[in-house]
Computed example of a mutant assay.
Amino acid sequence: MTTETQIVKTGRVMVAVDGSPASLEALRVGRRLAGLSGDRLVGVTAWQPFRHGVLPPASAHPEEFAEDLVSNCVIAAFRGGVMPEIDIVAVEGDPADSLIALSREASLLVVGSRGHAGLSGVLLGSVSNACAAHALCPVLVVHAPGSVAAFSESDLLADRAGAVTL
């Protein structure tokens, strides 16, 4: 008996957003690629209300906070430019697990690389590494501006055939 995983591609470029400089760059690159492909741009963040054994106050609304985080990151990423049309998704759960699960609905997953996971995470952070290894769609890992591997939006060009060149 075999079990098949159904993958539904919906024409969405999903961008992981956590407020880091790399995630702001991922938003900019994701918008450019969504524009080239005609796909919808989706900003995704994951929230975990009970971290490190600390209970939030009763007035806390972690899902709203997560949605506001994505909205504020979009504003910061495109300050001074045209704001993209973007869908916002905030899910409860581990960031890597949530992104991997959502990847079944994406044509592309764009994640920033923070690179804070020790020797194994020198080039990729733990979330970007997990997504690159397990996502059900192609994954693009974007470095923050100013890092050795970063590139500017002007470096992301479409050639005459419509292919993307990094």
Rank of each mutant, 00 (worst) to 15 (best):
R51K: 13
P49V: 11
G162A: 12
V148A: 15
S71I: 01
S126M: 09
R12G: 02
A76L: 08
E63G: 10
A149F: 09
A150T: 12
L27Q: 05
P145E: 12
A149G: 05
S154H: 11
D155I: 07
T5G: 08
S128V: 08
K9A: 13
V13L: 02
A150W: 13
A101L: 10
V89N: 05
V17W: 02
L24H: 15
V82S: 14
G162Q: 10
A101D: 09
S107L: 01
T2S: 11
L24G: 09
V15G: 04
R28W: 03
P84W: 04
R28V: 10
E67T: 13
G146K: 07
T45V: 06
G19Q: 00
G19K: 00
P57S: 00
C73F: 04
R160E: 13
K9E: 12
G125Q: 05
C73M: 05
A163P: 01
G121C: 10
S126C: 11
A106T: 11
G19S: 00
E67L: 14
G80N: 10
E64G: 15
V42S: 03
G38F: 00
V91Y: 01
L109A: 09
C137Q: 09
V148E: 15
G121E: 04
W47V: 08
R79F: 04
A16T: 11
V139N: 01
L123I: 07
R79I: 05
V164R: 05
P62H: 13
L41S: 06
A117I: 05
I7Y: 05
Q6R: 14
L108N: 03
I100M: 04
A76T: 12
G35R: 09
R28Q: 15
A96T: 00
R32Q: 12
S107Y: 02
P145I: 03
P56G: 09
R28D: 06
S154T: 15
G146E: 07
A101E: 05
R104F: 01
G53R: 15
Q48E: 15
F50L: 11
T45E: 06
V29H: 05
D94M: 13
V89D: 07
G146Y: 06
D159G: 14
P49S: 13
A144N: 04
S37C: 08
T5E: 13
R32C: 06
A158L: 11
A158K: 08
G43E: 07
E67R: 15
D159M: 06
A16R: 07
A106N: 08
S59A: 06
S126Y: 05
T165C: 14
L124S: 08
A90R: 06
T2Y: 04
H116V: 14
S154P: 02
L24S: 10
A150D: 15
R160Y: 03
